[in-house]
Design a protein around this nucleic acid. Structure first.
Length: 579
RNA sequence: GCAUCGAUGGUCUAGUGGUAUGACUUAGGCCUUCCAAGCCUAUAGCCCGGGUUCAAUUCCCGGUCGAUGCACCA
């Protein structure tokens, strides 16, 4: 990319975003801190619209209810999730050139084995003879330390209780599993979604709103029966949906993406299962709905060594930016049963679903029934422990040896009876698998802004226009009196008020020349503008202007709100109103 | 976090060891019957801290933010 070019799209769009109130550096009056941004009045509105479109897809269409969990959770949650251990990097600083280095990378370079399992002190000793990857000096006495990307805090006054700001919203949905399962009446599949802030203490965030330390995620956790991953109940909806897919095999061969239907992708084993394919297609549709150009959108499969250890398949929706290249914006992963297992182990609460068999299965089970009246008298206080331990043993005709604490006890066969019973097994406890589509809302917003930015020539002059999709544009319609007098302003004000009553965000403006007012709205992406002129008083009509074409059409004031709603929601097009 | 470069009204910019230029924008007014017209007026700025100096926006040091390279990106 040509960095000499002083004004690329990124600079233009961020300048506009700052100036017009989409995005601001956070706490600017004290000097901004990298990795934090404010959404200004227009940005916050637009973000809300993007989130609500996301809700339309996941909550209304898919039926996965939204929950809201705290952004802070106690340490145990992140011990279970692996973040306390695994979300940090072992780092060291070269004493010669002051460079920060990944200690395991240094070890690799110096042929040190098993670096990943070493303690910091061991690793420190092991790499002391290695050379710095930056300056090439022998490191010598160097300290290895963990840099964990989670923000930590303490909970309560004077407390040693550690809390962390969540690095993803997902864990909240996992830890609520039992409640969710009950809410969905103990049946798979079901899902929960969450839109909220997550936090990662990035070492050096440097890409505007692409890499933030505090960012908004929209995540869905869909719990499915492991054997049913190839039977998404609504798969027919996206089975014929076609899009280009960049598989890991193509990446290894440096080949171009291949377009195919989701049905085909699943049948050929390119996408792991119907569930993943379904959300790949849904994500494509969602991103196009908020205004992403499909030609700048691709779905890339993670390479096997790129995938998180728990995922069997993972696809990223990547959006092309002239500045940042392909930016991963959505990840769709099959997380298997990793998370539920981990939380069940850590919390001691089983996280399983009881699946009833169609017919109960008959099975023979061996039961060991102790004769407690004898056993109790003989073993006294140990009797209860022996009773419990007997169930897990396989006795011989001699009896059985069991261990209670450090003590070995021989229980003769006369003290219990072994009975083989035929019993009905009515079902089984299974740990569901989790399909996780995870969206970076801020990156979506950036992509929407970047792709909407355009400059064209109108009447020989440069016009800056944000070609935002009407469904995400902060202001939906502008209303102008041609002149702020002769009662035109009153009519325009009434129309504005009518829009407001129907939930349309309309902005009234009577300041300056009409052309200037149009340009102002073009720049913030307002898709439509109504102008009240002198004919309005005669014919009860107004002009309706389309932002992108700057064409106008006269429409009656009667039914104006419905017309605007239909336009904003995409039910009709501006062209269809043209005579 | 290191190295290099940068930071002047809301935006883009000129310039300077003695508080700053112009344009656009914004606001008020005149004018104006549909695309940034014109005229008058107003608001508004030298990134932050320290040093040198009679005096620092300017020179020096440190910081913050941004760009680039290195590193990092579960």
């Amino acid at each position: 990319m040509d960095i000499q070019c002083s004004h690329d799209v990124f600079e233009n769009v961020m300048e506009l975003a700052k100036r017009r109130g989409f995005i601001w550096p956070a706490s600017e009056c004290y000097g901004a801190v990298a990795g934090f941004i404010d959404y200004g009045p227009l940005g916050a509105m637009m973000k809300r619209r993007v989130e609500n479109i996301w809700r339309d897809f996941y909550i209304i269409q898919e039926g996965y209810y939204e929950i809201e969990c705290p952004t802070i959770a106690q340490e145990a949650v992140f011990i279970a999730s692996g973040h306390v251990k695994g979300f940090s990097d072992k780092m060291c600083q070269c004493p010669h050139c002051k460079e920060y280095l990944r200690a395991d990378h240094v070890a690799e370079g110096g042929n040190v084995c098993n670096a990943s399992i070493m303690k910091n002190e061991e690793l420190s000793a092991a790499i002391s003879s290695c050379r710095c990857l930056a300056c090439g000096e022998i490191l010598g006495n160097v300290e290895v330390f963990n840099f964990n990307l989670m923000f930590s805090t303490t909970i309560g006054p004077g407390s040693q209780r550690i809390g962390y700001l969540r690095p993803e919203t997902a864990q909240g949905m996992f830890v609520d599993f039992s409640r969710l399962l009950r809410f969905y009446r103990d049946k798979l599949p079901f899902g929960a979604v969450q839109i909220g802030k997550s936090y990662r203490n990035e070492i050096s965030p440097r890409q505007g709103m692409i890499r933030l330390r505090e960012f908004t995620q929209a995540e869905a956790e869909i719990f499915v029966h492991p054997d049913e991953k190839n039977h998404h109940p609504s798969f027919r909806r996206y089975g014929d949906y076609r899009m280009p897919l960049l598989t890991y095999i193509q990446q290894q061969k440096c080949e171009e993406p291949v377009e195919m239907s989701m049905r085909e992708a699943v049948d050929k084993g390119i996408i792991a299962n119907e569930y993943v394919a379904y959300y790949v297609a849904l994500t494509h549709e969602l991103l196009v709905t908020i205004g992403i150009n499909p030609e700048r959108l691709r779905f890339r499969q993670h390479l096997p060594d790129e995938r998180a250890h728990y995922a069997t398949d993972c696809w990223d929706a990547e959006i092309f930016s002239p500045r940042f290249g392909w930016v991963e914006t959505v990840g769709i992963a099959d997380r298997t049963d990793y998370d539920l297992h981990a939380h069940a182990r850590q919390s001691g609460i089983p996280m399983t679903v009881f699946i009833q068999f169609d017919k109960p299965k008959k099975t023979v089970r061996r039961r060991i029934i102790p004769n407690m009246s004898v056993l109790g008298k003989q073993y006294r206080t140990k009797a209860k422990a022996i009773f419990a331990a007997l169930g897990d043993t396989t006795p011989t005709t001699e009896g059985v040896d069991i261990e209670i604490g450090d003590e070995k006890i021989h229980v003769p066969a006369s003290l219990f009876e072994v009975r083989d019973e035929v019993i009905d097994i009515r079902g089984e406890e299974i740990v569901p698998h989790v399909i996780e589509p995870s969206y970076g809302i801020d990156r979506m917003c950036y992509a929407v802004l970047e792709q909407a930015y355009d400059e064209d020539i109108a009447d020989g002059e440069k016009r800056t226009v944000m070609r935002l999709s009407p469904n995400v544009a902060p202001v939906q319609v502008a209303v102008f009196p041609l002149m702020a007098r002769d009662g035109l302003d009153i009519i325009a004000d009434d129309i504005t008020h009518t829009f407001h009553k129907k939930g349309l965000l309309a902005e009234y403006d009577d300041n300056g020349a009409i052309g200037r007012r149009y340009r102002r709205q073009d720049e913030i992406g307002t898709p439509f503008a109504i102008t009240v002129d002198y004919d309005t008083k005669e014919t009860n009509t107004v002009t309706l202007r389309d932002r992108d074409t700057m064409k106008q059409v006269r429409v009656p004031i009667d039914g104006l709100t419905e017309t605007l709603r239909a336009l904003v929601e995409g039910r009709i097009t501006f062209t269809s109103l043209m005579p």
